[in-house]
């Protein structure tokens, strides 16, 4: 049986340096992160400036407009302050998810620490900007209106826990989707090779998992986009809380 977990292994390519006792290595993950950055930057900077865009330029402009509209509808025009951040997040996750579907590649977002760091970045941005912008009024976020005074403390505590659970659910959702999708793909793909090794009957039987693998790849393409989008729209909603906590 082919190990479906193998694809998530980090391989050290060389050592960058040390922080304390901890070795900081340049791994395959680092390489794929760099690849995502290079792809995004290359795509955006290579796109033409034509008044009537070609296909390539259209894709770039479409992604720009897509993220801009998502942010504007969720967080208002004031939210456009965070456009570079949200755009970077969306493109980074989306491109690394898509790259990860290509066989033999590594999926950056299948590691919880990566998604959690990104979610934490959003979370800290919300808290810092929320206090910077609204001062103590930011605490209104935890006090829903129209709640009887008796159970208000309980609700506030629950709201606070709910607030702190955001980066976790935010990151676990992306991580779990990518992980589960890639494991499933790998398992079905390994069925194909296993059955294929069993002679003619096995080869015919292998058609079913092969078809499923193809279908799953299509599904995973959709999930790659969808999860990047979900991560982005949740980022927008959380940023909206930082901008308008009174709602």
């Amino acid at each position: 049986m082919i190990d479906p977990i193998h694809q998530f292994h980090l391989n050290k390519i060389f050592t960058i340096g040390h922080i304390g006792n901890q070795e900081i290595a340049f791994t395959n993950s680092t390489a794929y992160m760099l690849l995502a950055v290079v792809l995004i930057a290359g795509m955006m900077l290579a796109a033409g400036r034509a008044l009537v865009p070609g296909r390539f330029q259209s894709v770039v402009e479409l992604s720009y407009e897509f993220v801009a509209n998502t942010l504007r509808t969720s967080a208002g025009s004031h939210g456009m302050t965070f456009f570079p951040l949200v755009f970077s997040l969306f493109m980074f996750i989306f491109v690394s998810n898509i790259v990860g579907i290509i066989p033999y590649t590594f999926t950056v977002s299948s590691h919880i620490i990566v998604t959690f760091s990104l979610a934490l970045l959003v979370f800290l941005t919300v808290i810092i900007y929320g206090f910077y912008k609204n001062g103590l009024k930011f605490f209104k976020l935890f006090v829903p209106s129209g709640i009887p005074a008796v159970i208000l403390p309980l609700v506030v505590v629950i709201e606070i826990i709910s607030f702190f659970s955001r980066p976790i659910s935010h990151s676990v959702r992306l991580f779990a989707n990518m992980l589960a999708g890639h494991v499933t793909l790998k398992v079905f793909a390994s069925f194909v090779t296993m059955l294929g090794a069993l002679g003619f009957v096995g080869k015919v039987g292998a058609l079913l998992p092969l078809g499923l693998t193809v279908a799953l790849t299509g599904l995973e393409l959709m999930v790659a986009f969808l999860q990047a989008y979900v991560f982005t729209i949740l980022t927008c909603i959380y940023l909206n809380d930082a901008i308008h906590p009174g709602h």
């Binding site: 070795e23 791994t27 995004i40």
Partner: peptide, 25 residues
């Protein structure tokens, strides 16, 4: 593996952010 990944992510993401916010967008 966490520190390596965090450092990688911070470096690459900051680079991406700078490129995106200064040049691309």
């Amino acid at each position: 593996t966490f520190p390596s990944q965090i450092v990688s992510l911070v470096i690459t993401f900051v680079a991406l952010y700078v490129i995106v916010s200064r040049l691309a967008l």
